[in-house]
Amino acid sequence: MKLKFTKMHGAGNDFVVIDAISQHIDFTPEQWKALADRRFGVGADQMLVVEKPQSDNVDFRYRIYNADGGEVEQCGNGARAFVRFVTDKGLTGKRAIRVETMAGVIEPRLEADGRITVDMGAPILDAEKVPFNAAGLEAKPEGGDSLWPLDVNDKTTWISVVSMGNPHAVQVVEHVDTAPVNVDGPAIEHHPRFPRRVNAGFMEIIDRHAIRLRVFERGAGETLACGTGACAAVVAGIRRGLLDSPVKVATRGGELSIAWAGTGSPVMLTGPAVTVFEGEMEI
């Protein structure tokens, strides 16, 4: 079959976006993995699939596949690309839409300046629900957060655990440029205390309204930006008493803006979404 697709990115986090409303899509994990391959496929961190909604009170269904071929719950940068795609393709005339994901309904909105804001919902802060197995561990309080000791490559790393519909382990580092992202990241992703694996965030505090961030993403490796990772890092920083909302998050691919009013409130993610090219390939 011939697959029509759109290549997009959000702050350098790149995607293959597929309209599954006008064409039938039923791929195996191996086919998704081949599509994401940067030498033999199109190349992407994630593949985003636009589908008809399964509920009456939403506009679309949004499915996400990582570069390893596995389906995942949520992708903040992808949600912005999703809005740009359905708007540019004339699939909706709304500036704000409701989209169902594996993690629940999100509500992205196209702003007047062209950026896109996504209501990512309230973070899950209960370690067991992230999920994180804390059996036998003693947490260390910092501000309003609980830091958990994690044995990583023969050392103890203190992390905040947060779910934004997908699990995150966030640590504070002195310099993000020299942080061992590609050494400790895989060890954290596959740590046995995270039964569904985890995204590993490395956060450098610049001031109370600015951070630098690198994320080793579950199933994708380090990406140039991670929207849910930015949300999780800001939530962790605010809970630890290190940050105040709103926070500018500098990633290697661009800048994101995160606002969070505190426990029980939704996290608001704002950033760019760009179309790179349209294509068609034989699957």
Rank of each mutant, 00 (worst) to 15 (best):
275 T>V: 15
17 V>H: 02
122 A>D: 03
216 F>G: 10
239 R>F: 05
253 G>C: 08
17 V>P: 15
32 W>N: 04
145 D>P: 00
250 A>V: 12
92 T>S: 13
109 R>Q: 14
100 E>F: 13
112 A>K: 06
281 M>F: 15
123 P>C: 14
48 L>S: 02
219 G>L: 02
66 N>S: 11
205 I>E: 05
123 P>M: 14
33 K>I: 03
160 S>I: 04
109 R>Y: 04
133 N>F: 02
237 G>H: 13
158 W>C: 00
29 P>A: 01
99 V>E: 01
170 V>G: 04
220 A>P: 03
105 V>T: 15
36 A>E: 03
36 A>N: 06
261 A>S: 10
123 P>Y: 11
62 Y>V: 14
70 G>P: 03
216 F>H: 09
183 V>N: 07
62 Y>E: 15
200 A>R: 11
259 A>N: 05
57 N>K: 05
179 A>N: 05
68 D>Y: 09
251 T>Q: 04
129 K>E: 14
19 D>E: 11
162 V>A: 08
225 A>E: 00
198 V>Y: 01
19 D>L: 07
164 M>L: 06
89 K>G: 06
190 H>C: 01
240 R>K: 14
165 G>D: 07
230 A>V: 12
226 C>H: 09
80 R>Q: 13
13 N>T: 12
89 K>N: 09
258 I>T: 06
214 R>N: 05
109 R>L: 03
41 G>L: 00
231 C>K: 12
111 E>H: 05
281 M>S: 07
82 F>E: 11
271 G>L: 08
259 A>V: 11
267 V>Y: 09
216 F>L: 00
181 V>G: 13
66 N>Y: 08
100 E>C: 10
142 E>M: 13
18 I>W: 03
163 S>A: 03
23 Q>A: 10
225 A>M: 07
265 S>R: 10
100 E>Y: 10
96 A>F: 07
274 V>D: 07
187 A>Q: 08
44 A>H: 02
38 R>K: 04
222 E>F: 00
230 A>T: 12
25 I>H: 01
6 T>E: 05
199 N>I: 05
192 P>E: 10
188 I>K: 09
202 F>W: 03
86 V>S: 06
183 V>H: 06
184 D>H: 06
231 C>V: 08
47 M>P: 12
131 P>Y: 00
49 V>W: 00
